[in-house]
Amino acid sequence: MNVKLRVWRQAGPDTPGKFVEYEATGLNPNMSFLEMLDEVNEDITKRGEEPISFDHDCREGICGMCSCVINGEAHGPEYKVATCQTYMRSFQDGETITVEPFRAKAFPLIKDLIVNRSAFDRVIQAGGFISTSAGSAPDGNAIPVPKQDADAAMDAAACIGCGACVAACKNASAMLFVSAKVSHLNLLPQGKPEKDKRVLAMVQQMDAEGFGACTVTGSCEAVCPKGISLNFIAKMNRDYFGALLRAPSKAKAAHAD
């Protein structure tokens, strides 16, 4: 099969970018989308030009490195898969495919299709952890965790931190990402002692990074390669509300800053 690509090319954050068209010919429908880009890059290299830069690593949908908005959809047309697990059989022969980087103010562009997602790391630094140090843990079975809680925590923890939720949201909101981590840890008994502090601090950092607010459009959930549920956002809203009610004293709230 053959497709025509319109790829966003931008040499650096401060240089203007533009779409450049490429022909990808003789493709096998069982190729992954990134393998198709590999082939296009081989051709570009042979022509003596600089190939398209794009993030990728594991190519099995788990590391969260790959990004790309394909024909207006973060991670492309298929449901619950990342760009690296999108196959050419999902496209029509002869189709024109537009490839853009994730766009959000909090994800500044680095080059071509590569953006900087370290805002996510800073949100985790604000409280996306349980304050335990190696060596201090009790036996793994000392605290039973109800299976339904452990399963729900796992559903939330499945987030790969790719940022598709931000890319797809009309407000470039990071609510799905942040709520997944807040919910993962707040659902577990181990995470309870820091529950309020965690949600207050992580939301504060999320806002400081310049992500938008949630309008409950559901786009984030729809593009999420791991199908993280919108219900975790509701849970975070609940946790945050509870934290506000439980932390009336300035001292306690300041502690969360």
Binding site: G140, P144, L185
Partner: peptide, 21 residues
């Protein structure tokens, strides 16, 4: 010790209905 440490960190290992690993 690794299992203990990871459970303390909040790693959601699979569990039985009893709540145990």
């Amino acid at each position: 010790n690794i299992i203990d440490q990871c459970v303390a960190q909040g790693v959601p290992f699979a569990r039985e209905y009893s709540g145990y690993l």
